[in-house]
Design a binder for these strands. Structure first.
Lengths: 205, 205
DNA sequence: GAAGTTTATAGAACGTGTTCTACTTCTGCC
DNA sequence: GGCAGAAGTAGAACACGTTCTATAAACTTC
């Protein structure tokens, strides 16, 4: 099938090759993450089976493992992708509220409701995140930073102070813990809302 | 081996039977939990393999599963046992400090250092705790309650107020999250100490 | 103390994450 | 255009959590 006789084939190969090498890989990676998110959305953590992800992304199992060395890496990386999307969306809208307290609550409420709209996906990602071991430390750190940034931005548009960073960290911890309680059905959505509000009040009011 | 002809055999059977039935089961359960803790202490979450626990506790695999329906149940239950021990020890000593802030920090420091003395065990238990799904909700709730009680007691000896309960919950969340960061080597012991102190200061100073 | 029920045992079997092997296809380089 | 090495593929193989089966022991009840 290769057009071996045309003089242009060379240039064409180089060009599409260029794009292929990096671009085909970007493309594969994207397919993998998309497949992960689709499967997670449908059936949660357990439904994200490596063979199923590979098949759906149309790559071999070995390739999947070359891109993501474990299921946890895969899910935490996907969480990172999702959080970045959420952050971008958040950056495009202005956050209402007269003070840090109101603004943080707004952001928390909005993102929490967003996650609760897709319970299986949330379950898959939070469980992977909290189950991650040291080998996924980098991915986990990345996500943790994204979360903290989200809350420091909500608190003020200035460069965050150390105190604001500390508060953001506490909020991240409480938020995650409540999300986990919610996905494991130990807390209702309104329990979560109440506790988050209480927490933010303790910290920022 | 059964003394079938003696009139007392009956009573004895009933008695030792009584003790056996329940007591043999208590005994088995204890052996299982001990084996779990021993294996976890040696090699963490991965070393707690169901076959290994069963063998070490000298019960069949099926029996292990009859007592604890999954590895997570097993580890979270063991965490409950450990926390109760820690609480009892805590109850026997008086907590120094002039105010809630100092007292909570004292308790936090003490229990954190205790856990850090056995990193593998801590890793096994915290990972099981945060990985638990809905089916282990009861066990997880039990542990969460133990944690919160530990901190409300530190804050004051009175019946805890709602605010104190809320604060205890936040501290529990932050504490757990830092413990996880520590076992996954994303935070050092002194990072953890610093963050806990900062958190308690935000909440109680 | 015998029948029936519950609990325990040994071990096979199964599912899914992970690793390994043998082979093919790309890609960059001369 | 041909070659060396990297990347991808198909699928077997392995490990460990979990379930299942067949049998034996322990307990309860009459």
């Amino acid at each position: 099938m290769t057009a071996s006789s045309k003089p242009r084939a060379d240039a064409l190969n180089v060009l599409s090759g260029e794009e292929l090498s990096s671009a085909a890989q970007r493309e594969r990676r994207k397919r993998i993450v998309d497949a992960t998110i689709a499967l997670a959305s449908k059936g949660g953590f357990d439904a994200v089976q490596m063979r199923a992800v590979a098949e759906r992304a149309d790559v071999a199992l070995g390739t999947l493992y070359r891109y993501f060395p474990s299921k946890v890496h895969l899910l935490v990386s996907s969480l990172g992708v999702e959080l970045e999307r959420a952050q971008e969306k958040m950056d495009r809208t202005s956050i209402p509220g007269d003070n840090a307290y109101e603004r943080v609550l707004f952001v928390l409420g909005r993102i929490t409701r967003g996650l609760q709209r897709n319970p299986h996906l949330t379950e898959a990602m939070t469980r992977a995140f909290t189950f991650a071991d040291a080998s996924a430390g980098a991915e986990v750190d990345n996500v943790a930073r994204l979360m903290e940034r989200m809350f420091t931005r909500a608190m003020s548009e200035e460069e965050p102070t150390d105190e604001h960073k500390a508060i953001a960290r506490v909020i991240s911890d409480v938020w995650l813990s409540n999300l986990v309680a919610w996905v494991t059905r130990r807390a209702t959505a309104s329990d979560v809302a109440t506790r988050l509000e209480l927490t933010v009040r303790l910290l920022l009011a």
